[in-house]
Amino acid sequence: MSSIVRVAGTALPLRGDDIDTDRIIPARFLKAVTFEGLGAHAFEDDRRALRGTHPFERPEHAAASILLVNRNFGCGSSREHAPQALVRRGIRAIVGEGYSEIFFGNAVALGLPCVTVAHGDALALQEIVESAPGTPCSVDLETLSVSAGERTFACSLPEATRQAFLSDGWDGLNALLQRPEEVRAVAERLPYVTGF
């Protein structure tokens, strides 16, 4: 593990509100005991429905590492397979107008920052990348900014999450394992644990 300060590369615009995790990775691909190979199935049904015109299918976005989305991205099922599929497809950061909480948490645990930008800025970013797909883009967690070519936009991320990325604490398990005696103490104060 390591800290995550900045993600740079090209971006992939994916328009639409309320894109749910069933669409990111259809349930039939959950039938596996590992996350391997999920990247190839990201948005499989949407891609098939759009016959080659889905942004995840476009050759000009094949190497993109920053995903540009709109509102309530990742709603629905709690499946971690969704951010796993995106990470395995090469996505390293997401920029959008908003995320479902479970998706956001799952993504953080994988080291995939999801930053929030204003509605107009999300559309502007998508337009820039649609008209010039190779535009160099970056997400900077230190300055909380997103850049696309010459333009820079402010973004936000809850401070705790930002610190977790900057300080290498985004895989939260180590912190949770540090004080087992305090965990026991809480358990022993709970009536239902002690049998009332």
């Binding site: 709690s78 397979h81 948490g105 799952n106 645990a109 994988l110 912190a175 949770l176």
Partner: peptide, 18 residues
């Protein structure tokens, strides 16, 4: 509350969530 697989790991290993 519903959690993702990394958090399932967290709860299994620590009985806690962040």
């Amino acid at each position: 509350l519903g959690i993702g697989t990394s958090q399932v790991r967290d709860v299994l290993a620590s009985q806690c969530l962040a």
